[in-house]
């Protein structure tokens, strides 16, 4: 057990993100409110980053062993990526979706407090442990944002009327609008950019895992169920990239591939623990 009580930090981060998003939505053209929204949202990220650092120090090992601990990193990266995407490419709605997703994951951690202990099995005590997990969680978070883009695109495509009428009450459900309220045409640019970054990190994570596996278990690839699903995740995004490259003007097909790929990613991340085929996996962990 640790001496640090995670509840206030997590609750504070959730509160600040929620407040930040509310301020972004209600700011309109008021500069002060917008600035306040930026400050609040960023402070939420900083609070969680600070907590993660303290947890690391308190446990005396990287907090990356249990599923709950990986959810923590995910909840830290998601709003950071959402915010960066907003700043870099000016997509307002991304910020809200990634913020909500991070809040959901942090709520799961609050409701199901994991077992925090200092034990770290010998096989995990490696210089590859931290880069492998961080790079993977970062890739997962970037690809989660790409999945949000995919679901939003499919929503707009299949439910255009509903999207337009609902967006009068909740703008994030409708198409992106510019400063004058004019509808911005849908573009696959954002999804593509995110997938390129996400796939790059996914590849790094996979290869770091292979190099680590060689040092720890004597082989770089064993088709362990987790590895099998990691390979599937990787090859699904590979399919997306090639499909987009070959048919740059097709949109709906690639959006479906992107949504499916994220389902496979989630099976790889935690679903694999529940699969009977993973009964003998070296990668199943609790929490």
């Amino acid at each position: 057990m640790m001496n640090l009580d995670p509840t206030p930090y997590k609750a504070l981060a959730i509160g600040m993100w929620a407040l930040g998003m509310f301020l972004f939505l209600s700011a309109g053209k008021r500069r002060t409110v917008t600035l306040l929204a930026h400050a609040t949202f960023l402070s939420g990220i900083l609070v969680l980053a600070g907590f993660t650092w303290m947890l690391w120090m308190d446990l005396g090992r990287p907090p990356m062993r249990t599923l709950g601990e990986t959810r923590l990193w995910y909840a830290l990266f998601l709003p950071a990526i959402g915010y960066t995407t907003y700043i870099r490419w000016n997509y307002k709605w991304i910020l809200h979706y990634s913020g909500v997703m991070a809040i959901v994951f942090l709520m799961i951690n609050l409701m199901r407090p994991g077992v925090y202990d200092r034990d770290l099995m010998p096989a995990l005590q490696s210089i590859w442990f931290v880069p492998h997990v961080i790079v993977y969680m970062f890739a997962y978070a970037v690809l989660a944002v790409s999945a949000i883009v995919a679901v939003k695109g499919l929503w707009l495509y299949y439910f255009e009327k509903q999207a337009l009428s609902l967006s009068r009450f909740l703008p994030v459900l409708g198409p992106e609008t510019d400063a004058d309220g004019k509808v911005v045409p849908w573009s696959m640019q954002l999804a593509d950019n995110l997938v390129y970054i996400g796939l790059g990190f996914l590849t790094l994570g996979l290869l770091f895992g292979a190099l680590w596996g060689k040092e720890a278990w004597g082989h770089y690839w064993m088709w362990d169920p987790k590895e099998t699903w990691a390979f599937l995740t990787w090859i699904m995004y590979l399919a997306y990239v090639h499909y987009r490259h070959h048919r740059p003007r097709q949109v709906v097909g690639p959006l479906w591939v992107l949504s499916m790929a994220f389902i496979v990613l989630m099976i790889c991340w935690f679903g694999v623990n529940y699969l009977p085929s993973a009964a003998n996996s070296v990668h199943t962990y609790t929490g």
Partner: peptide, 18 residues
Amino acid sequence: GQEAQVHDEGAFAMLVEE
């Protein structure tokens, strides 16, 4: 001319192209 391009027919131009 296959590069991704933005149409001027509205928000869903890219989506309905198929």
